[in-house]
Nucleic acid binder design. Structure first.
Lengths: 187, 187
DNA sequence: TCTCCATATGCCACTAGTTGCATAACATAG
DNA sequence: CTATGTTATGCAACTAGTGGCATATGGAGA
């Protein structure tokens, strides 16, 4: 079983009617933190989903802009989506090139790997700050108290992001310290 | 810049000479927690790396088993690897189908999503137990004290795994509780 | 004019990943 | 004998992902 993008698109179109362009924009914003796909992929998949009658579109002429196709999920599409929801998600083992780089750890590579870790720390801290800002702006205590069930997912995704980036920063710092200590002559 | 598997293979062959089969086995054990590739991919890539003179192999006849090719990295390969080490790693935004599923959150899907979360909690707890067992078996305090620099990477990978699975379990539990609370009629 | 940006869609060629199949050598169990 | 497992390698077909190119409509700036 694969076809993950299919179900991502069905999910998004189940929430609201959208153009391919809007979906691509979604992947560049909120959803982009936990899914992404190029516009070529999106249009390719939408075309297939249309052929399979899982979605349909309405063409709309826009005077000031190019024409657009607004897609919506069909009843068949809803069925497929519901079946997918019932099926267990297979967790995909991640790929972490930073850890691969650390496999190259030996005396002559210590400096370059410490640089990599410093970059990673900086980048992770920036990401943590972004998440924190999003939380403050969109999910204050009051805003969270009035969140509808349908709007909870993005908040939960944010919480996951916050928790995992914090754990990552913790690990990065400890790793950096441990390697720097080896570099000091421990080995 | 892509070709990630290329550098994973160069890294592994820089550490020790190996057959394609051994590399695949590596992806099924320790390294598999942070990288993976099918045997078809491995052989395809090894073939390309050989054509590009980044690795070379020695064919060995084995009486009781099929012949094998033992690969090793060339000087060119080492150069390529070193250049890659100097270059910043691009963090790839993850893909999280569980979060995509949560986008389907509404009253009629609460039960099925709670089931999914329960499965995820169970699975994550099992993974945490595996990591804990590995730490206890291979990385006791004494063993860690005598770890060579070259052997640190797998320990650091384990630490990362432990930290991130803990954060994940925390989030899963909080998420489950929050959704169950909505299901109790908060909405 | 060109370049960049926005909205909007699409084709093409290639790489990376997946799945199925295959061969060769051995072993064990039913 | 078949089935399963191991060690060992490889081909083929397909899907998923990436990067480049393109068109169409508009805008702004150098």
């Amino acid at each position: 079983m694969h076809m993950a993008l299919k179900f991502v698109l069905l999910t998004l179109l189940d929430r609201e009617r959208q153009t391919g362009y809007e979906i691509v924009k979604t992947f560049e914003s909120a959803v982009g933190y936990f899914w992404s796909a190029s516009h070529q992929q999106v249009y390719r998949e939408l075309s297939k989903l249309t052929d399979e009658n899982l979605v349909k579109f309405t063409s709309i002429k826009q005077g000031d802009k190019p024409d657009k196709k607004v897609y919506r999920i069909t009843a068949s599409g809803k069925q497929d989506l519901q079946q997918w929801l019932q099926a267990p998600v297979k967790a995909s083992p991640g790929k972490d090139l930073l850890l691969v780089k650390l496999l190259n750890l030996r005396a002559e590579n210590v400096a370059v790997l410490l640089e990599e870790l410093d970059r990673a720390i900086k980048s992770a801290e920036e990401r943590a700050a972004v998440y924190s800002g999003i939380k403050k702006t969109y999910y204050s205590k009051e805003q969270r108290a009035s969140l509808a069930l349908e709007d909870l997912a993005l908040y939960l995704a944010l919480k996951k992001g916050i928790g995992s980036v914090a754990a990552h920063i913790k690990w990065l710092r400890e790793t950096r310290a441990e390697i720097a200590e080896y570099g000091q002559g421990r080995e």
